[in-house]
Design a protein around this nucleic acid. Structure first.
Lengths: 335, 335
DNA sequence: CCAGCGGAGTGAAGCGCTTCACTGGCCGTG
DNA sequence: CACGGCCAGTGAAGCGCTTCACTCCGCTGG
């Protein structure tokens, strides 16, 4: 277990003071000759600055906290991983925490994350209305993805243009001649956003289709529960619809299974639309028609806004992501 | 921006020296009365030890690095997230790095991660044979998941009992009366493990089924490429098989689509078996029959072994995960 | 009755880095 | 020629915590 070289060692090797070495290595000061000499000494010794000591001295850790409401949600799972990757690519480290669906844990993890003194926070909240967002946004740059934090005016946000998204979906459906659609709402927490029911109603009305709203079972439901729940809806209140539009892709998968249970062929008897564009949407069955927000766009926006805020010491920006409808195999003309 | 209280402040508030406060808060020394007084002072001030300063003083960061070969791989995506969650639950922070399929990046990220001075490392390597694993395992506790690190004898590992897994799959298939199966190999990197071809051959021979091996297209292939590739195989070399056994679930999904392209009904005309048990395996179509290693078991083993190694300063253990065959809707009797 | 012991409490020295405030040349300007 | 300004280089003071080594005290046992 050989000791790592310290700045002292480099300074000694180069024949300068530690202060000079410190400045030189960061290219902040010093004559070209000295800088070069120090650099070579560092090279020779295999020196790398200790980020811990640096963090203590500067008060900045180079770390960004990522707090997710529930990574059991496939969309958030991917989000967490992609945010980490993007942060790493931009020279920062991500430490990710997952509240796993429990608002109490969200609070606790937020506290833990704060202790870590991150330079900033990226959050996909369970409860955007919670009071703790306010406190934390006062002390750290925070960017929230998927929604606004109403209690934290100083936080940035990357939100989805659900109005436009709804418009695309209903235009698509109306264009295929559908007149009756079931809309399956999501249970919080989940999905990029939960467009308000009135968005649904407005766009349905605009294109002249009638809507039956289906509420999802509680978040604890497993796949079989979801399937049965939707199959029941299809047999009951939603009987006779030609489309099931689900406000999350996971729900849409369950809807596909429910259709099978009811003996309905997709998309011939029943069209199914999702709302997320998970990786697997393209992988399964006929390919799920779904709303996409462009994972990369979302991640770039969130990370970009946060880093600008950190580096320039300004309040993080807010931005809106435009939707794209990805038409695959689960939608077809109404019969 | 109000300054956080420091240990000094707490000590002053409690009327003791910083040293006493430090010991007291960690319950290491001090009379009950003093400990209580310090605790209350800390409470009153809302004190929380600064982990950076602590790390500098103790040399231990409480952080564990997680290095993944490619989180585009859905199995690794989930693994990364679940490892993070498990670490957090055990009081540590995870910083996750993702080589994104590039061995050069794997090397670079490993270097970055080392600089962070993590207490240990959890890796799902792109190239288990790479020389850098040796160096790093000498300096940090390392647990590798999915395979052994042949060059790093001091590293721990969580490996899969592929022999048993193959046995289960072929027993299942033979039991259903299948006589000819196509086995789709995976391109590295991916999947819990790539059982050697000879495992396949041996178990196929044991139960008396014939095997046609299908090599996958390069890792850069997208879903459509995979589907077409497999559809072509089904029309060519693999024509007439009654089962497609894929050594990853993603491949299995592609196989399902290929079957559709060829007009084969699953499982009536063709059975499909995967090898991973992704979350979505249960979500899509008839539900994918697949080998499962039990995500939780794997994560617990990896994290457990690493933490034991860190805390007791011993070499990390090696363990083997027993497989479970999850029979869902994509396998049925041979016709 | 006193030596000796152990536990409570403390001062101070780090951990490895940054940065403030300062010194001492060197150069350009009046 | 004298002076001011500028910049390379430096010593030392932290950042907030842990921990070593020490003092002091009250007890116990011989």
């Amino acid at each position: 277990m050989v000791k790592r070289p310290t700045l002292q060692d480099v300074a000694a090797e180069a024949g300068v003071s530690p202060a000079t070495a410190s400045y030189a290595l960061r290219g902040q000061r010093g004559s070209d000759a000295t800088v070069e000499r120090v650099r070579q000494a560092a090279e020779r010794l295999g020196y790398d600055a200790d980020p811990i000591a640096r963090a203590l001295a500067t008060g900045s850790t180079g770390t960004v906290g990522v707090l997710c409401g529930s990574t059991r949600d496939l969309w958030q799972q991917r989000l967490a991983v992609d945010l980490s990757r993007a942060l790493m690519a931009r020279g920062r480290h991500a430490v990710v925490a997952d509240a796993d669906g429990d608002p109490g844990r969200e609070r606790a993890l937020l506290a833990k994350l704060r202790e870590q003194r991150p330079d900033g926070l990226l959050v996909a909240p369970l409860d955007p209305d919670a009071a703790h967002w306010h406190d934390v946004a006062e002390r750290f740059p925070v960017v929230c993805v998927g929604e606004q934090l109403p209690r934290a005016p100083s936080a940035g946000a990357v939100v989805f243009d659900n109005d436009a998204g709804m418009a695309l979906v209903f235009d698509h459906l109306a264009g295929l001649g559908h007149r009756r659609v079931a809309v399956v709402l999501t249970a919080r927490p989940s999905t990029p956003d939960r467009p308000a029911e009135d968005l649904v109603r407005r766009h349905a009305a605009r294109v002249g289709v009638s809507v039956v709203l289906v509420h999802p079972p509680p978040a604890t439901a497993d796949v079989a529960d979801l399937r049965d729940h939707l199959a029941a809806a299809l047999a009951g209140p939603a009987a006779g619809v030609s489309v099931v539009f689900c406000l999350s892709d996971s729900l849409a998968f369950a809807a596909l299974r429910a259709a099978a249970v009811r003996g309905l062929a997709v998309p011939d008897d029943l069209s199914v639309v999702g709302f997320e564009d998970l990786d697997v949407a393209d992988l399964v069955g006929p390919g799920l028609t779904t709303m996409s927000w462009g994972e990369e766009t979302v991640v770039d926006a969130a990370v970009g806004q946060l880093l600008v805020s950190i580096e320039d010491d300004v309040a993080p920006a807010r931005s809106t992501i435009a939707p794209r409808l990805v038409v695959r195999g689960t939608t077809g003309p109404a019969r």
